[in-house]
Amino acid sequence: MSMTQTALKPSQADAKGGITIGVADIAITNDPNATLVTYALGSCIGVTIYDPIAKIGGMLHFMLPLSKVNPDKAAKRPAMFADTGIPLLFRSAYELGAQKERMIVCAAGGAEILNDDGHFRVGSRNRTMLRKLFWKNNILLSADETGGNISRTLVMPLSDGTVSIRNRGKEKTLWAA
C-alpha cells in the first residue's frame, strides 16, 4: 500500500467515551475506554481494525473507491477514498504499535440505490476496491456485512474490540473475541 500520508495522531474519546467518525473521516486510538462509532453508512464503507494485544483500534468511513477522481482532494482528505484512506488507517495503527498479524479487520456498508442497473454501482465498487486492497496486502477480513440498500451504523469499543452493526434500532454482533 502507498505510504504517502503522515500517520494520524491518536484520537481521544469525548466525555462519554465516544469517538465519532464522520463521512470521509478516520480515527485511530489506544484509549482503552474509547468506543469508535460511525453512523449511517449507505454506499460508503466503514472499516475497523483492532489489535487485541496492543489494544489499538481504528476506524475509517470512506465514500469512494479511487482517489484518481480528485488527487488534490485526496491529499487534503485521504479518508474520502479507499485507496488513500485504508493505507493511512493501517499505517497509523502500525506507528502506534499495532501488528499486522494480530489485526482483526471488519467492514460494513457498500449499499446500493434501487435499480442501479450497473450504471453507478458506488457501493459494489467500494466493496471491490476494499477486497482488492486487502488481497494485495495479505489482509484477511475477519467479518463483514455489505451490500443491500439499508443504512448501517458501525460500533467498536476498544475494551474488547467487539464489532457491532445497528440498523433500524436493532443491533447485531459482527465480530467478537
Binding site: V23, A24, A40, L41, G42, S43, C44, H61, M63, V69, A111, E112, I113, L114, N115, D116, H119, F120, R121, V122, G123, G148, N149, I150, S151, R168
Partner: peptide, 29 residues
C-alpha cells in the same frame, strides 16, 4: 445519498429516473 450526508431508516431505497440520468448526462465519472 452517495455522499452519505443523510442516511436514515429509509436507507438507499430510492430510484434514479433513467430519463434524468440521460438528460443531465449523469454517468459514473
Amino acid at each position: 445519498l452517495w455522499s452519505g450526508l443523510c442516511i436514515g431508516d429509509d436507507g438507499l431505497q430510492y430510484q434514479l429516473a433513467p430519463h434524468v440520468r440521460e438528460s443531465l448526462k449523469i454517468d459514473r465519472a
